[in-house]
Design a protein around this nucleic acid. Structure first.
Lengths: 115, 115
DNA sequence: TTGACATATTCCGATATAGGAATATGATAG
DNA sequence: CTATCATATTCCTATATCGGAATATGTCAA
């Protein structure tokens, strides 16, 4: 009766803490499953399964090399999150806003100095 | 045997599509439960429950006025997400990066003009 | 070719979650 | 004070999710 979503989207994929940790590692450089197992001290199936979720939503891609599989981040897939966050930036005076303000100041100065 | 997290954090809270929609409305202006019910055409308990989750993680706050309850966004609570996203910005050339580059240019110019 | 290695997959049990329906709570109007 | 309105809460069911354990798959090395 209750209709629940089956496919993970990017937002729910990063809802899982372990997956965020995996992402934080893979954004540094591509790594194999066992390297991640060693770093986090999780079971190999746990790592593989979470990578599977991230792969399904395209946050990571896979490169096979012999019996190893190197996983890496695909940052573009995370842009929807960044774009969604935009709506809040005006409230908290983000770095972007600060730069934006700075930019406006510069422009005003520029216009002034033309007179 | 399996230890799963019980408390929602901000990241998992925005993993739910309906909750993101609620947030998108409430960021515009504070609203009551029934206003949200009318906008989305969801059941009242559905709206109240999702607001409950958002309230628990402090993404929204509640203001009681008679029998109404006005909900509003607390943008600061979403900053951890924005900050977490920072690690990817260098890859996709965000607006912030563009402004940052611009800022660097300006600074260089400024230093130059001092000589 | 066979054994060891790297990784994926399957099966299972415990818990979490979303939504519906019904009901409870609390406040106001009349 | 009582009926109604606004909202929360409880109970239930279906499904999703995570992790462990065991096993399957595929590849290399000796």
């Amino acid at each position: 009766m209750s209709r629940l979503k089956t496919t993970h989207d990017v937002f729910s994929a990063i809802g899982e803490p372990k997956r965020r940790l995996l992402i934080e590692q893979l954004v540094i450089k591509e790594m194999t499953v066992n390297e991640l197992v060693d770093i986090f001290d999780w079971s190999q199936p746990t790592v593989s399964k979470h990578l599977g979720v991230l792969k399904k939503v395209k946050i990571v891609s896979e490169r096979k090399e012999g019996r190893f599989r190197y996983y890496r981040i695909q940052p573009d897939e995370l842009r929807p999150i960044q774009e969604w966050m935009h709506q809040f930036e005006k409230y908290w005076g983000s770095t972007m806003d600060q730069l934006d303000n700075y930019l406006n100041q510069i422009q005003v100065k520029g216009i002034d100095s033309e007179h």
